[in-house]
Computed example of a mutant assay.
Amino acid sequence: MKWTEFRVHTKNEAVEAISNILHEAGASGVVIEDATDLTRGFDSPEGEWVELSPEDYPEEGVVVKSYFPESSHLQETVEGVQHSINELSHYGLDIGANVVTLSEVEEEDWAHAWKKYYKPVKVTSELTIAPSWENYTPFSSEEKVIELDPGMAFGTGTHPSTLLSLTALEETVQKQDEVIDVGTGSGILSIAAALYGAKNVRAFDVDEVAVRTAKENIELNGVSSTVLVEHKNLLADMKAQADVVVANILAEVILRLVNDARANLKTGGSFITSGIIRRKKEEVREALTAGGFEIVEVLEMEDWVTFIAKAV
Rank of each mutant, 00 (worst) to 15 (best):
N86Y: 10
G96A: 03
K239W: 06
K280F: 13
V209K: 10
E76W: 00
I295H: 03
G47Q: 02
V81C: 10
I32T: 08
S132M: 01
G197W: 09
K215G: 02
S132L: 05
I272L: 13
N233Y: 04
A27I: 04
I18Y: 05
A210T: 12
N221E: 07
V123G: 02
W3E: 07
S103W: 05
A263E: 15
G183Y: 00
V179D: 10
E107Y: 14
H90R: 12
L228M: 12
E178G: 09
V173N: 00
V78N: 02
S224M: 08
E104L: 14
K266V: 12
D260N: 15
V99N: 10
V223L: 07
D243S: 14
T213F: 00
M238C: 15
P58D: 10
I254L: 12
V246N: 06
E142H: 11
N221K: 01
K239V: 11
I276F: 07
P45G: 08
L88K: 00
A168S: 11
L235E: 08
N135C: 04
F271W: 05
A236H: 12
S44L: 05
E208A: 03
G151A: 05
E171I: 01
V298W: 06
R279K: 12
P69W: 01
V50N: 12
N12K: 09
I188Q: 01
A193W: 00
N248I: 01
S140C: 03
N217R: 00
R262F: 09
E107F: 12
K2D: 14
T156A: 02
S84I: 04
I18K: 02
E282Q: 13
D207W: 01
I276V: 13
G157Y: 05
K266A: 09
L195W: 07
A198Q: 10
L74P: 12
N20G: 12
S141H: 11
S161H: 02
W49T: 13
K115M: 11
A287E: 15
P69V: 01
E24C: 01
K116H: 14
I308K: 09
A247S: 11
Q75K: 13
T156S: 12
F204D: 01
L234S: 09
L234W: 10
V179L: 05
L127C: 02
E286Q: 15
S28T: 11
G151D: 10
A309V: 10
E286I: 03
M152K: 09
A309N: 11
L228I: 14
N135I: 00
S190N: 06
N200P: 03
E143P: 06
S72L: 07
V182F: 02
V105G: 04
E108Q: 08
